[in-house]
């Protein structure tokens, strides 16, 4: 059995993609993506949170770049252990981290005018599909969609490099934004929600020493581009932050 600390739970279609940290030595961890049998995403009910420790039986897995962390399993088993946010970030800082854009995925990050100026990498060039980084600034943007909205962020790395229009797939931030939009009983909730995120929530993030993000890559589509996604943004949102609305 392999034990991992769940570090990232991201929205993937109707399910969740999960990444855990496997301890390599007292000072290092590596990311592992446990997958359900015969699928990429875990479906509801999925009773786990970031920081939970889980065990699973690894089964032989065929991986393709950049998702070298993929690990097929027969299911997750919760252990009694769970880490709080500070402890989890401590572990994440001992896993794959990059001080700058160049080393996030070990390859050149591409940009174009497409995708709202989001950035991408070539799947065959990337050496991994998940990496952590410290950030110095973040801004949220909500784009309307018929069924709701799309949450994007601008992220400033410690290296003074900027990631434009990064889609947020972090489950908790997506849920938080959804609850925020629901709470705003107006015809046009998105600008107000965006304002709340940037003026009220953002300062809480920037004020803590827990500013840490995990950037991930989705499965490439036909265009052979892996767009950079915000898999986890720490600190994680708290429902009490909505009380000031």
């Amino acid at each position: 059995m392999l034990e991992v600390i769940l570090s990232d739970i991201t929205v993937m279609g109707q399910g969740y993609c999960v990444i855990g940290l496997e301890r390599q030595s007292p000072d290092s961890y590596r990311s592992v993506r446990p997958m359900p049998p015969q699928a990429f995403a875990w479906r509801e009910p999925f009773p786990y949170s970031r920081g939970d420790c889980v065990c699973f039986d690894p089964v032989p897995t065929v991986v393709s770049p950049p998702h070298l962390e993929d690990q097929q399993s027969r299911g997750l088993i919760k252990t009694a252990r769970s880490l709080n946010e500070t402890q989890l970030i401590e572990c994440l800082r001992k896993a794959e981290v990059s001080p700058d854009l160049e080393h996030l995925f070990g390859c050149q990050v591409q940009r174009s005018t497409q995708g709202g100026k989001a950035v991408w990498v070539k799947p065959n060039e990337a050496r991994r599909s998940i990496c952590g980084c410290e950030y110095d600034n973040v801004h949220f943007r909500l784009y309307p969609e018929p069924a709701g909205f799309s949450l994007r962020t601008e992220v400033l790395l410690r290296s003074d490099e900027r990631l434009n229009s990064v889609p947020v797939v972090d489950r908790e931030w997506r849920r938080f934004a959804g609850r925020l939009v629901q709470r705003i009983q107006r015809r046009e909730p998105l600008p107000l929600a965006q304002r709340f995120l940037n003026w009220s929530v953002r300062p809480k993030l920037l004020a803590t020493p827990l500013k840490f993000a995990r950037i991930g890559l989705p499965r490439p589509k036909a265009d052979q581009r892996c767009w950079l996604m915000l898999d986890s943004l720490f600190p994680q949102p708290e429902d009490s932050w909505l009380d000031s609305l």
Partner: peptide, 23 residues
């Protein structure tokens, strides 16, 4: 979804209309 946001952003940049398409 990537392309959709790309279209909204491009229209915003071109026209200067803020929060384009909302709601």
């Amino acid at each position: 979804s990537m392309g959709w946001v790309g279209i909204l952003s491009a229209i915003e940049e071109t026209t200067g209309i803020r929060n384009f398409g909302n709601p």
